[in-house]
Write a protein that binds this DNA or RNA. Sequence first.
DNA 1: ACTATATTGTCAAGTAGTTAACATTAGTGT
DNA 2: ACACTAATGTTAACTACTTGACAATATAGT
Lengths: 148, 148
Amino acid sequence: MNRSRITFTLNELVYVLNSTADRLLRANFELTYSQFLFLVTLMSQDKPTPSYLAECLGVSRAAVSQRLSWFQERSLVKVSRVFGNEKNLSLELTRKGELLATQSADFLDKEFRILFDGGSSVDLEKLDKTLTQIKTQLIKNLESRNAA
Amino acid sequence: MNRSRITFTLNELVYVLNSTADRLLRANFELTYSQFLFLVTLMSQDKPTPSYLAECLGVSRAAVSQRLSWFQERSLVKVSRVFGNEKNLSLELTRKGELLATQSADFLDKEFRILFDGGSSVDLEKLDKTLTQIKTQLIKNLESRNAA
DNA sequence: ACTATATTGTCAAGTAGTTAACATTAGTGT
DNA sequence: ACACTAATGTTAACTACTTGACAATATAGT
């Protein structure tokens, strides 16, 4: 087994998944996949700041900063300051934003459940475990190499 | 098992793989991962045109067109016309380009073999089959839905 | 032979990210 | 109390893509 094949397969699969999600979201919620991720990630956080959100999304702080106004203009996200903290912005979904995030996430789950079905006979639970294990192993090996 | 978890896991794994490859290639060959893919994809093709290369890379024709000069300036790719065909450009790796593609691919394979090892006890061959099966199933389901 | 159709490569304009630099603010050590 | 240091959010300049329009070329139908 050479490395290339499995990394290519992974990239291809991820491409199909993400572009399908993007198409579904655009058609039904006028939302891109990355806008969806922004909302959903925000929703899953407790007291999110732009900086922490950036980290969770795997993008730069600058990227989050630039995108914030888009969500504010549409009343999806409320940006405020907490008294006594001049350093951090505080982010939260508006009721509208929360509704959109919830509905689109439910929709996507439902659609994908249909698409994943079809007698595929693959144990997704087990597959997820395997993938996580590989990821963890990779990161561990990378770290121990960097330490040396 | 909900959809989100496995798609997130897949995205995370692909991110680790691709950014690791990018780092290794930059450090050792002054090449980004996407430049590497450009060369390797070109090498694997028989009589490639920009249009077909774009399709294989999964990007637009415009993207390939814009990047070509970069590879020409570095004498990695030769762009020419075939007599009697005014429509298509003909692409081929120079000897230098071919050498770079081969060496960097070998290097990456070697590095990843080390990183993937470590008693992970995962059957990569089988995993690749499973992932391919899922991808195929997804595409099939998408097509049959679009037809309806 | 000739018109309609499709494909190719390129350009312009727009989008979403990046890094680097910056002022501002918060936390730390002494 | 105060100087360092680190972290935050914003900006500017850049990169790599996108879509849509375009002229040029090839192909097909009649």
